[in-house]
Amino acid sequence: MVDEYPLDLAGIEDQRILWERAARNLILQVTDRTGCGSGWHGHCRQVLTWFLSRWGVAPDRAQKLVDEAVGGRFASWTCPDTVLVDDVAEELAMSLRPDDGTQSAGPAADHLERWLAVRAAVPWRDAPGGGGDGPVAPSRDGAADDIRAFDGALDPDRARGMLAALDLLRADAAHGASLDFELLQRWQQHVLGTPQPPPFRDLPAFAKGGRERYGIGPDTRARLDACLAESARRTGQLLPLTARAARAYLDVCFFHPFDDGNARSAFLALVFVLAREGVALDGVSLLRRVTFQADEPEDAVILTRYIDIHLAETRRNSASPAS
């Protein structure tokens, strides 16, 4: 969608009307695709930020300009009228300056491909083992407790959706379900509170203020499914559970399959991989308060260590409930 409007930031003074028309058309395309449902304006901001970044505006600057142009003028379940759309598009175009760019207008790096290269090089077999083998039942439900405390503080409806997804994934784990996009999609419908399972994204995705870009191709979903399938325990090719759970989490992060809620989806995938082998944690704080880089191998190793810390502590506490 953003590639339909090739523009040049250096020529902004002569092209300003073209930038305005492009922004207007993108807003209207988002309203048409989302139906102006819950949180549609967040996706609209994301698309406008992608658009500016794609044509040379520095990612942080792009996000700032979009935030300033949109402000609080878009609302869930409300489609903006023509006057408002035109006003936002005009303000965005008028705010652009030739020196807003620090990158060329050429294709940006694909951090999904960078992640897949890192993924192949990480020494997953050397990951710590979580303090032992076999199932473990914690004295408290760390995942549910964290959702109630963290997500509940942000939005009670968000917490309810996450808890519903948590119950569903544990039922799926008990039945030995295979982890793939379709399974994530079922949980994500509860996470986002959408009337239908959210589809796989059809555009490049951005994260970390636009600093990471995840490409899209006709085989992206199939590649994600192939990666997630490796989270299962396999005879003759046993990787530590901590490694398989961490890898699934990062796969979801960097494939970035949904337009929204990918961090929550990644966390649920991690919990599922553990639950499928009868493991639950009594704490998850290290797994939800950190950010990982797609092209940094050490980050993958760090995540396996964080899972190991929580798992080993859960085993100790389970063995000594009085403590």
Rank of each mutant, 00 (worst) to 15 (best):
D146R: 11
L192R: 10
P297Y: 05
T34Y: 01
I216Q: 04
A93T: 05
S139G: 10
R223I: 02
R73T: 13
A322K: 06
W19F: 11
Y5W: 15
P98W: 10
L203N: 03
F200K: 11
C227T: 07
N317Q: 13
D260M: 00
G278M: 05
R140S: 13
E298G: 12
C227G: 03
Q185S: 15
I17F: 08
I216G: 00
G161M: 06
S53H: 10
V252H: 10
L96S: 07
K64A: 15
E182Q: 14
L168Y: 09
A89S: 14
Q188E: 15
S95D: 11
A93Q: 05
I27P: 02
G152T: 06
D60K: 12
T291F: 12
L274W: 03
V83P: 00
L281G: 08
A120N: 12
G130D: 04
P297W: 04
P128D: 06
A246I: 08
G215C: 04
P123L: 04
L28D: 14
A245W: 01
R244P: 07
P204S: 07
A62Q: 06
A127W: 07
A105K: 03
D155V: 06
R288K: 08
L203V: 13
L228V: 09
L18K: 13
Y214E: 01
L92C: 11
R234V: 13
E90T: 09
V273R: 05
E13H: 15
V273T: 15
G193K: 03
V88D: 08
N25V: 02
A89Q: 12
D259G: 10
L183K: 08
R221P: 01
R201V: 01
C227Y: 00
G37K: 02
A143D: 06
S95C: 02
A222Q: 12
R213K: 06
G261T: 05
R244S: 04
L224K: 02
R33H: 02
R119D: 06
V136W: 10
V85T: 15
A23K: 12
A10K: 11
L311C: 12
P98Q: 09
C79P: 09
G152S: 08
A22E: 05
H256F: 02
W124A: 02
D299P: 08
N25L: 13
T82I: 12
F181P: 10
P59I: 11
L287K: 08
L28R: 15
P128F: 10
G56I: 11
G142W: 05
P199V: 03
P107G: 05
F254Q: 00
Q185I: 03
F51H: 10
F272W: 13
T82P: 00
A322W: 14
G210S: 10
A164K: 14
V83T: 15
A109C: 02
H175G: 14
I12Y: 09
P321F: 05
A263W: 03
H256W: 00
